[in-house]
Amino acid sequence: MPSKTARSARLLPPRETPRPSRSRYAIGLVAAILVAGSLGYLFGAPDATENSVAEMRAAEMKRDATQVTELTSAARATVAELAVVMTGLGEALPPGGALAARTPTDAEVGEWQRVMKQAVDKHSVTPSGTTATNVARAGFRSAVDGMAIAVDTYAYCRKLPDDVRAGCLDVARRQRTAGVMAWSVAATQLDQINVDAGHGHQHVYLTSTPGEGAMTADSLPEGAN
C-alpha cells in the first residue's frame, strides 16, 4: 500500500492589529483640545474678551481717580466761599426763630446770595463717573441748593412784619441746618472715595459745630490711608 504523504501545515498569516478608525481619532483630537482649553481656563489664561474687559476697567479707574481729584478741589474751594456765608447766617438765625443777635446789612445779604448762586452753578455740572463718585457729587449739589434756599428764605423773611417774621426765620434756620448736614454727608463720601482712589483721607467739611447734627471728620490725618 502506498504510504500517505503528510501534508505540510499551512502557515496562517499573522493577525493584524486593528487600526483606530477615523471617527475614534477625531474624538480623541477633540478631547485633547477640550482638555487643553480647560487647563488654560483653570490656569487663568486670558482671552480677548477678558483682556478687553480689563482694559475698560483700567480706563474707568483712571478716569474716576481724575474725577475724584477734581471734585475734591472744587469742594475745598466751595468750603472757603461758603464758610463765611453759613457762619453769618447762623449768627442771624439763632435757635427758636428769635430775632437775630446780629442783623446783617442788606448789602451783606446780597453778597451771600451772590456767593450761593456761584456755588450752585459750580456744582450743577455733573459728569458721569462711578456710582460712588456720583453719590458724592450729587450730595454736594443738593447741599449747596439747600443752603442757597436758606439764604433766599432769610432775605425774604427780613421784609415781613414782626408778627410773622419769627416763624419765617425758623424755617430759614432749619433749611440752613439741613444744607449743612447734607454737605457733611457728601464730605464723608468724598473722604471714602479718596481713600479708595489711593489719595488718602481728604477732609472737606463745611463745619464741625456740635449740635447741628452734621457729620464731622475722623481723627486720621490728611493723606493717610
Results as ranks from 00 to 15, higher is better:
23 S>T: 10
102 R>S: 11
62 K>A: 09
97 G>A: 12
90 G>Q: 02
90 G>S: 14
124 S>I: 12
56 M>F: 09
47 D>Y: 02
102 R>W: 06
119 A>H: 03
123 H>V: 06
133 T>D: 03
59 A>P: 03
26 A>P: 05
105 T>M: 03
140 F>I: 04
137 R>W: 03
90 G>P: 03
54 A>H: 05
104 P>Y: 13
78 T>A: 15
66 T>A: 14
143 A>I: 13
28 G>F: 04
137 R>M: 12
103 T>D: 13
59 A>Q: 15
37 G>K: 12
132 A>S: 08
71 L>E: 02
43 F>H: 10
15 R>Q: 10
9 A>R: 06
40 G>V: 14
61 M>T: 07
72 T>W: 00
89 L>Y: 00
15 R>E: 04
20 P>S: 11
113 Q>A: 05
85 V>Y: 02
36 A>P: 04
72 T>Q: 10
89 L>E: 00
111 E>R: 15
15 R>F: 02
74 A>E: 13
142 S>K: 10
115 V>L: 03
105 T>R: 03
116 M>N: 04
86 M>S: 15
69 T>K: 06
34 L>V: 13
141 R>G: 12
93 L>D: 00
97 G>D: 09
38 S>K: 06
16 E>N: 14
23 S>F: 14
38 S>V: 10
75 A>H: 00
114 R>E: 06
97 G>R: 07
21 S>P: 04
27 I>S: 11
77 A>R: 08
113 Q>I: 04
102 R>G: 11
92 A>T: 00
45 A>T: 08
138 A>W: 00
50 E>W: 11
110 G>C: 04
139 G>C: 07
110 G>Y: 02
24 R>T: 07
109 V>Q: 07
122 K>E: 14
97 G>M: 11
8 S>D: 15
83 A>I: 15
65 A>L: 11
137 R>Y: 07
45 A>F: 09
25 Y>I: 06
39 L>R: 10
66 T>L: 11
97 G>L: 09
105 T>P: 01
37 G>C: 14
140 F>C: 02
32 A>V: 15
86 M>Y: 00
55 E>I: 05
132 A>R: 08
23 S>N: 07
84 V>K: 00
25 Y>E: 07
17 T>R: 15
101 A>W: 08
28 G>Y: 08
68 V>P: 01
130 T>I: 11
25 Y>T: 06
143 A>D: 03
32 A>C: 13
78 T>W: 06
12 L>A: 14
35 V>H: 09
90 G>T: 05
13 P>K: 15
135 V>N: 05
116 M>S: 07
68 V>D: 03
119 A>I: 14
136 A>K: 05
117 K>R: 13
34 L>N: 08
8 S>C: 09
126 T>F: 02
25 Y>C: 12
100 A>Q: 03
11 L>F: 10
55 E>Y: 05
111 E>M: 15
116 M>G: 01
67 Q>G: 11
124 S>C: 06
94 P>N: 13
32 A>S: 15
117 K>C: 04
138 A>Q: 04
7 R>C: 09
132 A>F: 07
79 V>N: 01
85 V>A: 02
27 I>V: 12
26 A>G: 08
74 A>Y: 03
105 T>C: 03
112 W>H: 02
113 Q>E: 12
103 T>G: 06
108 E>T: 09
